[in-house]
Amino acid sequence: MGKLPVSTDITPAEKSVYVRWLPNGLPAAGYIVLQNSADRAFDVNKIVTPNYQSVAIYQTVTDGESSKMVKHDKFTIPAKGEFAFVPGQYHLMFTKPTHVITPGDHVRVMFYLGDGKVVFKIKMPVRTSPELY
């Protein structure tokens, strides 16, 4: 059986993609705005990377003067819309690097879209600050 047509409905927003580096192998936050040009929404319930032992979806929730991080198992990119991992809201949390990672490196990330038959791969640049993009 031949391959199915590839879905190319998801694209990253210009200059929205980076991993904020912290020293000593500390967990790193990843940011990306995923734009969906399709008429249907995509669930993403699996994200993997070879550069860290785990990657998780977190949301910063503010309640009055306190804030906490809430873990999510999946997220949805709405039809003709976008899902934003941006500072202060949602972010990807990369923990336990599998090798030494320094600013200037790239983190390979695979997002499994919908039923998982299509993966969207991206190399996220590692930065100390988004201004250094």
């Binding site: 590839v6 190319t8 694209t11 990253p12 993609v17 299509v118 969207f120 791969k121």
Partner: peptide
């Protein structure tokens, strides 16, 4: 190539975005 699209996990991309 800022992103690539695959029907499986292999390294042969089916499509890719060029910036």
């Amino acid at each position: 190539a800022s992103a690539s699209y695959h029907l499986d996990e292999d390294d042969d991309p089916d499509a890719f975005l060029i910036s």
